[in-house]
Amino acid sequence: MADGRFHRDEVQHGAGDIGAGDGGAGRARFDGVAVVPLPAPTPPSPPPAPLLTGGALTRARILDAAASLMTTAGLTRTTTKEIARAVGCSEAALYKHFRDKKETKKETKEETKE
């Protein structure tokens, strides 16, 4: 400070003291201007889950409906027609994704493991 300027690590006394004249609110005042500390940065949010569309969405809906129906009624009492009705698709669409209801049962078990 020999030349009248402040080094960034030095503390200015008097009008520039932190809390001076502001009731100790923790704000620094330099030449009548309040310097307010910035809030801490927020952590980044996780990326959104990929959206399922088309066939992948239909397949996921079939698996959800099959798991729900098979949990309630069991494998032998659940029909492919009931699964298709619960999804809102035809039995043909169900068979496009799975060979039979046993395959849907197998796939729901694999989905649960992950």
Rank of each mutant, 00 (worst) to 15 (best):
residue 36 V to Q: 07
residue 40 A to R: 11
residue 3 D to L: 08
residue 16 G to M: 11
residue 1 M to P: 07
residue 107 E to P: 02
residue 79 T to D: 02
residue 71 T to Y: 03
residue 4 G to V: 09
residue 99 R to F: 05
residue 1 M to R: 10
residue 35 V to T: 15
residue 56 A to E: 15
residue 4 G to N: 09
residue 105 K to Q: 11
residue 108 T to R: 07
residue 89 C to M: 07
residue 47 P to H: 14
residue 113 K to A: 15
residue 97 H to K: 05
residue 45 S to F: 09
residue 54 G to M: 05
residue 74 G to F: 02
residue 63 L to I: 06
residue 32 G to A: 10
residue 59 R to D: 01
residue 57 L to G: 08
residue 16 G to R: 10
residue 83 I to G: 04
residue 3 D to P: 00
residue 4 G to L: 09
residue 17 D to E: 15
residue 3 D to H: 11
residue 49 A to L: 14
residue 34 A to H: 11
residue 53 T to E: 12
residue 39 P to N: 11
residue 44 P to V: 05
residue 100 D to C: 04
residue 75 L to Q: 09
residue 43 P to D: 06
residue 12 Q to N: 05
residue 20 A to K: 12
residue 52 L to H: 15
residue 81 K to G: 04
residue 28 A to S: 13
residue 113 K to H: 14
residue 53 T to D: 09
residue 88 G to F: 05
residue 73 A to L: 09
residue 109 K to S: 11
residue 42 T to E: 12
residue 72 T to M: 13
residue 80 T to N: 01
residue 72 T to Y: 11
residue 88 G to Y: 00
residue 61 R to G: 01
residue 64 D to W: 03
residue 95 Y to N: 05
residue 35 V to D: 13
residue 20 A to C: 07
residue 76 T to K: 10
residue 114 E to I: 10
residue 13 H to R: 14
residue 65 A to K: 02
residue 21 G to V: 08
residue 51 L to E: 15
residue 91 E to T: 13
residue 34 A to P: 07
residue 34 A to D: 14
residue 109 K to C: 06
residue 21 G to T: 08
residue 79 T to P: 03
